[in-house]
């Protein structure tokens, strides 16, 4: 039997461009507000009134031929047995080679302490309204909606000096849950599973529709695959 390769098929026809995936991802993975593990490309084409608009959700493509993995000097960026492009913050030296290598801009670098807004002590109205530090202290976590499950396989919050990116929610897969963006998608546009298993949702979708990937000419062999059009 073929090796497992987790894949995500995104049905652009079903997608309505709501960004629930983007937000749910931030929530699930304790991602700083300014980073977008789950992201989107917006394309507006044409002239009034013949205007065409596309919203294309993006995330780490978990490439089979991942340039970030190839370029990482410490193997902090690596492929798992299930085809996930995974990052090990304990090995990361923060050199940026992966970010330069990636054609998709999906790797983010923590150039400052993340979630610093939860350490701020000033209040808008002194003694009457709260402050970031007060909220996080009461919660006892780095950020109030901190998800401890994320810490199963990555630092719950990635420290300053290392990179971070989508992991296909490997920590959720371990509990039999789908990635957060898949669960959050209200349109069912995201199909997740082992693409090497012909019975899986993504394999079936790929067989039925003509699949496309972003920047195929880069030879990265992405495992985030798009079907139909927005």
């Amino acid at each position: 039997m073929a090796k497992k390769q987790y894949s995500m098929v995104i049905d652009l026809h079903a997608c309505v461009g709501c960004a629930a995936c983007d937000i749910a991802c931030k929530c699930e993975n304790n991602v700083p507000a300014s980073f977008s593990w789950a992201n989107h490309i917006i394309e507006t084409h044409g002239t009034f009134p013949n205007v065409r608009y596309r919203h294309i959700p993006t995330l780490c493509n978990h490439c089979s031929n991942a340039p970030c993995v190839a370029n990482c000097p410490t193997t902090a960026m690596h492929k798992t047995d299930e085809g996930i492009t995974m990052h090990d913050a304990d090995k990361c030296i923060g050199c940026g080679a992966c970010r330069l290598a990636c054609p998709y801009g999906v790797i983010y670098y923590n150039d400052a302490e993340p979630h610093h807004e939860w350490q701020e002590e000033a209040a808008a109205i002194p003694n009457c309204t709260a402050a970031g530090s007060e909220v996080s202290e009461k919660c006892g976590t780095a950020l109030p909606y901190y998800n401890p499950a994320r810490a199963d396989t990555l630092p719950g919050v990635r420290p300053k000096g290392v990179v971070e990116k989508c992991t296909f929610c490997d920590h959720r897969l371990a509990h039999g849950e789908e990635p957060a963006c898949v669960e959050a998608c209200p349109t069912g546009a995201r199909l997740f599973g082992d693409v090497n298993d012909p019975r899986s949702e993504p394999a079936k979708a790929i067989a039925k529709h003509s699949p496309r990937v972003l920047q195929p000419e880069k030879g990265t062999r992405p495992n985030v695959i798009y079907i139909r059009d927005y």
Binding site: H78, K79, T80, D81, E82, M86, D88, D90, K91, C139, G140, T141, A142, Y146, P148, A149, A151, D152, T153, P155, G156, D170, L173, A174
Partner: peptide, 29 residues
């Protein structure tokens, strides 16, 4: 279930999980 590429720093997934989770939530509790 989930498997990961082996690396010298990591023992089993479970123990890594419990260690980190403990560290990051114990302050709150």
């Amino acid at each position: 279930m989930m498997t990961r590429t082996a690396s010298p720093q990591q023992s089993t997934l479970e123990s890594a999980m419990s260690r980190r989770r403990f560290l990051q939530t114990s302050a709150g509790l």
